[in-house]
C-alpha cells in the first residue's frame, strides 16, 4: 500500500521534518491568499467609508437568510474536514471517505445557493459594472429604488469578492474529489496523510474568508 508520498526525500532528515516543511509551505501559500483577498477587503473599506449610507442601503438587497445558510453550510464542511483529519490520523479511512463526501456535499450546497442568489440578482438587473439597472419588486422591495449613485460600486465589490471566493470553493471541490479517490485506494495512513492535512488547511482558510464576507456584505 505504499506510494511515492511516503518516501523520504534525501534532503530531509526524517519524515517529521518533511511533513513540517510541506505544512510551512502551505501556510506561506495561505498567506498569499490572505493578501489576495486583503486587496478586495481594502477596496470594500475605502468605498464603504466614502459612502456608508449607500453600502448599508444596498446590502438590504442581499438576502441575509441565504448568506446565513451558506455560513452554516461552510462551517459544517470545515467541521467534517477537521473530523476527517482526526480519523485519518487514527487510520480509520472508511470514516475519512464518508466525511470528505459530506464536505463535498456541503460545498455543492454552497454553490447551488450562490447560483440562485446570482441568478436572482441578474434577473432584476443587478449586474456588476455598467449593466447595473435594478428593477422589479421582490419580497416587498422595489429594486428600482436602489438605482442610486455608488450602489453599483457595492455590487461590483459583492460580485468580485463572492465570485473569487466561489472559484476557491470550486477548486477545493476538485481537490476533494481527487482526495476521496486516493483515500478510497488506501493511499494514506497515520504515518503519511500530508495531502489530507494540507487540503484541510486550504478549506479552513476559504471558510475564514466567508466568515468575514457574510457580515460585511449581508448584515451591516
Amino acid at each position: 500500500m505504499s506510494s511515492t508520498g511516503t518516501t523520504l526525500k534525501h534532503y530531509f532528515v526524517n519524515h517529521e521534518q518533511q511533513f513540517d516543511a510541506a505544512k510551512l509551505g502551505m501556510w506561506l501559500f495561505l498567506v498569499t491568499e490572505i493578501l489576495l483577498f486583503s486587496g478586495m477587503f481594502v477596496a470594500y473599506a475605502v468605498y464603504r467609508s466614502w459612502h456608508p449610507e449607500v453600502f448599508a442601503q444596498a446590502s438590504e438587497l442581499l438576502d441575509w437568510r441565504l448568506g446565513a445558510l451558506n455560513t452554516v453550510v461552510l462551517l459544517a464542511s470545515s467541521f467534517t474536514v477537521a473530523l476527517s483529519i482526526h480519523f485519518v490520523q487514527k487510520g480509520e479511512n472508511d470514516k475519512v471517505v464518508v466525511l470528505l463526501l459530506m464536505t463535498l456535499l456541503c460545498a455543492a450546497i454552497f454553490m447551488v445557493v450562490k447560483y440562485f442568489e446570482y441568478s436572482g440578482k441578474f434577473a432584476h438587473g443587478v449586474f456588476p459594472g455598467a449593466g447595473f439597472e435594478p428593477q422589479g419588486i421582490i419580497d416587498g422591495k422595489d429594486y428600482s429604488k436602489y438605482d442610486i449613485p455608488f450602489a453599483p460600486q457595492f455590487f461590483s465589490i459583492y460580485f468580485v469578492m463572492t465570485g473569487i471566493h466561489g472559484v476557491h470553493v470550486l477548486v477545493g471541490m476538485g481537490v476533494f474529489v481527487w482526495l476521496v479517490t486516493r483515500v478510497a485506494r488506501g493511499h494514506f495512513s497515520p504515518q503519511w496523510y500530508t495531502p489530507v492535512e494540507l487540503t484541510g488547511l486550504y478549506w479552513h482558510l476559504v471558510d475564514i474568508i466567508w466568515i468575514f464576507l457574510f457580515p460585511l456584505l449581508y448584515l451591516i
Partner: peptide
C-alpha cells in the same frame, strides 16, 4: 511512525468549536 505522534484533536473539542461557531453566527 513519522506522523504517528502528531497531536490528534479529540472529537469533543472539534464539536465544541463547531457549536461555538454556530452560536457566534
Amino acid at each position: 511512525m513519522a506522523q504517528g505522534q502528531h497531536h490528534i484533536i479529540p472529537i469533543r473539542m472539534l464539536a465544541i468549536v463547531f457549536g461555538l461557531l454556530l452560536f457566534l453566527t
